[in-house]
Amino acid sequence: MRRKASLVLLAFAVFFTALSPLMRFYAFPRLAKIPPSQYQEMVLEVKPATLIDYGTMKAKKVDKLTIVQTLKGNVEESDKIEKRVGKDVVVWDALVHVVGPDGKMVSQIPERYIFDAHSSEPVNAKGEMVDGKPVKREGIEFKWPFLTEKRDYAYYDARSGTTSPIHYKGTKDFRGVEVYYFEQTIPWTEVDVPNTLPVKGITPESVRKTGTKFWYTTVRKFWIEPTTGAPVYGEEIHREEMRGGTLLEGSGQDKVTAFAGHAKIRDDYVDYTVDLVSSQRVLVLLLTSYLPWGFLGLGAVLLTLSLVLEARSRRPGEPEEHSAPEPEPVNV
């Protein structure tokens, strides 16, 4: 009986011990992925902000601008692209909608971001765009890979259409969560005229005809929870100017600030994001740490029990389970 029990324990010991590395190194890279149906909204505020008045073509100060960013997973599109490229893909339709203090739209930029569900690397496929223009991204955007490393990453800047490093600047504590802090500076760069402008009658084409150019610079800051690769907080010091051309002739300046301000995530969204990322972190840790180490420990305990039972079943002085019966004396 003891021998049977020790064999069963041995089978379970091998089962759990084998499960430990298989879970971490085989299952985790395949199971940890961003769901294609994710829907997420984020609100950032700029207090105060500088904004162009298209009536006078002069910059004016406003108390507050609000940036509403929505990311919506497009499951149908990701299915189509997955079939073509043969890997798990996420398609995010995103909209950055900027609202002025009067509640009216200031600018609106749609995006379609296509990326690998496991590595967060961009997947170049038909439909990828920023503000209606087809693009071919290089580098991550919005989301870092699972198990983010303490190093620089190539990051895609949608406004300028360029990729440059976003630098790892240290590990910090953000509201009780250990995060990696990243920062990227985009130097003054000429950018396209936005497709959606807030004043009727002014179109991108009419602005281009005046010879006036849009220039932009930004400092982008992200606080990334490294296990999930998800941002728990972000800030952007953004500055945009209109330069030259006949559009500015009346203002008496050769350049005017179109937008300037320091955007920060609204406090209630910071709390919401920290809670969300903390719960997701536990799921990732289950696959990378809790279950593999737990299984390894359980395997060791079961192996020890199995060996103890086996040793007891062989102890001298105790009858062997399957020993042959003693021969009886034969009377002649």
């Binding site: 149906s37 909204e41 509403v68 929505t70 919506k72 990701s78 909209l95 749609p110």
Partner: peptide
């Protein structure tokens, strides 16, 4: 995979 959310891309401040 789940389904595409029926919620719209926001153009108002929640």
């Amino acid at each position: 995979p789940g389904e595409t959310s029926p919620k719209p891309l926001l153009t108002t401040v929640p």
